[in-house]
Amino acid sequence: MPTLLDYRRRVRSVKNTQQITRAMKFVAAAKLRRAQEGVFAARPYAHEILRVLRSAAARMENVAHPLLVRRPEEKILVVVLTGDRSLAGAFNSNVIRHASEFMREHSSKQIELVVVGKKGRDTFRKRGLKFAGEYLDVSAKVEFSKAKEIAARIAELYISGEVDAVYAIYNEFKNVMVQNLQAQKLLPVDPEVVSAGEKDGEKSLASHAGPGSSLPMEQAPRGGELLVDYIYEQPVEEIFRALVPRYLETEIYRILLESAAAEHAARMTAMDAATRNASELIDKLTLQMNKIRQAGITKEIIEIVSGAASAMG
């Protein structure tokens, strides 16, 4: 039978834990907000890149770029995005499981791996896998320079022919409660994206257009914008060549932000649940503690009363 003191100690330790989980929840909430702002802030740039890319492609007779070349997919590169820290619910294990399944499905092909995030790296390293690249400490504060670095590495592997296709496996931020696992093809760039079609090609970027962006350029496109007769300061092919990698960078940047937002959301939810559980536990323990205290008092009263009764006897 635990004594009163044991209960006091346990309540105190649960309270301490609760303080930590509560603090982590607030930190995750703040980081989530920053990641979401980042997602919104990145849209106008991505949107414009795509628009200029298309208008350039529309004026070229022969749209060609090393990143658009299609080859039979024999060697594929998988980019797995995890977090750097745990305590984010099932966030990391979900991505890792999804990535493992993906690799099993494609086990007939040669698979290269690029990991983003400490958790993914540690897990896959334990399995004895080698990486074509690893990037850590990305999700706490997503920076465009990281996206650029990753994009450069991926493009290099693709152009040199070391891989024939590149997929990214990541958590897409749906809302605070829901993360969507995605396996998105990054390379070769879908020709639909650069073809002037305004319908599906924009899917990856425009469908995310939502509230939060205040740029006028994102509002209803001016009529027939693609038909504007631009003067190209440099040959249109040169502009196109410069734009395709930029497009890849913005896509990777978006994915990094999505994954970071999803991670912080998952951590926030997990820590919220933990804080609530701690409250419940404290209530339960306090009740038990009071019962014991009560029992002790009752016992003392009985002792006094019976002592007095015998003295008066």
Binding site: A42, Y45, F144, L215, P216, M217, Q234, E249, T250, Y253
Partner: peptide, 28 residues
């Protein structure tokens, strides 16, 4: 209407009378 945008933020949005910018092959 001058808009300056980077992937990370919207740097500037102003109505200006003229501007000069560093194009790849010289100032424009």
């Amino acid at each position: 209407e001058l808009q300056v945008v980077t992937p990370e933020r919207h740097v500037l949005s102003e109505n200006v009378q003229s501007l000069e910018m560093p194009a790849k092959d010289g100032y424009l």
